[in-house]
Design a binder for these strands. Structure first.
Lengths: 198, 198
DNA sequence: AAGTAATATTGACAGTGTCAATATAAGCAT
DNA sequence: ATGCTTATATTGACACTGTCAATATTACTT
């Protein structure tokens, strides 16, 4: 039963990844409505019921896509870190900017990644859930690391993380599409310095 | 065509409100999945296609429900204001607590109210859209007012509003269900004081 | 080479949003 | 009051969706 690593094992190749890719594409082009098991199957060139062999229903595919989203998210933030100057504040600022840029660039995916409450995800299979949990921890870990230098007297790390995460996440959620904003919104770089960090 | 104000005008009475109520009930009991035109119609005791006379499709019903949600939201924040001490900081704190409590109490509705990007809402009818816009402005206005006293040298009001809104909204979105949190989350009252407000 | 497990297909079913055609009832003019 | 017009509700249909059971096909193991 153990798959050989490199070669395509079965009928399709590896359908699981293909379906996730198809789902990502549908999500970005057609919005949440377009993310459909049957459309994914069609895009991957298989029959409408083929996904059932890899995902325990639509919810599992969604969770798997969320996992992929969090990996992309982590990569984006880490790349921003790598390119930013190494001072703690520059690292934090670059990470937040990447956070917001990701939300703007992958609006639908970002919403999917964060919209779902816990109980909505029940029923997803173990593999998807595990992948998603790992990916979530990776993305949160990135933010956590850039917050760490700001741990000081009276400000424990958890408190600072939570504050920064809430601020950047709220900003990203509320103002990801500028068209929706009721008025002109100040840049995040004007807001972040108003946290008491040190 | 003008309706008399008090008496039920037609077959059902006023089906529009009944459908919104049904939608709210379905949302709270059965989650996002349960919000369905046909289920709303059944709950209101009409045929499956009756809603078409009041809503331009499912999206319009959703927008109307979002509007109702924002009205409830505004009421909750204003009630908290009324009960809190009148100092600016107490007012702000109470409003934020009410914000978070609403997100926790009406989790699914809260997500619906804020999840949808602009373009997903396209196609909703004018009445629903107008109601929702008014309700959004009302709820934002409440937050805006409690931020106003903190306008000071160098901090314009818009900047402060945006900061506070982002922080409380991010916190509410991320930690509305504690079960999902990766770790224990500090109370919001420990975070709010770390904004540079004055 | 044969057998077994994994994978994909086909067909079916209930549920969904939406549309067109029809029926019913309310409000208004005469 | 009577008839007309408009608003509202019903019925039936259609395509699309997720999901399941039965079957077929392929890959891996022995």
């Amino acid at each position: 039963m153990t798959k050989k690593n490199n070669t395509a094992p079965h009928h399709h190749g590896n359908l699981r990844e293909a379906l996730i890719n198809a789902g990502l594409e549908l999500l970005e082009t057609g919005g949440t409505q377009a993310l459909t098991l049957r459309k994914c199957a069609a895009l991957a060139g298989v029959s409408h019921a083929a996904p059932a062999n890899h995902f325990n229903g639509l919810i599992s595919l969604k969770v798997a896509i969320m996992a992929r989203g969090h990996f992309m998210f982590t990569e984006a933030m880490q790349q921003a870190n790598a390119q930013a100057e190494t001072s703690p504040w520059n690292q934090l600022n670059a990470t937040c900017e990447a956070y917001i840029t990701f939300a703007r660039t992958h609006k639908t995916l970002f919403h999917l990644m964060f919209q779902s409450g816990c109980e909505e995800l029940e029923g997803a299979d173990k593999q998807s859930m595990s992948e998603n949990q790992q990916a979530c921890e990776a993305s949160y870990g990135t933010l956590q690391q850039v917050c760490l230098p700001f741990e000081h007297t009276g400000n424990n790390a958890l408190n600072t993380e939570t504050m920064v995460w809430s601020l950047v996440h709220g900003y990203a959620m509320l103002f990801a599409d500028k068209d929706c904003a009721m008025q002109d919104v100040p840049e995040f770089s004007e807001i972040l310095p108003r946290l008491k960090l040190k």
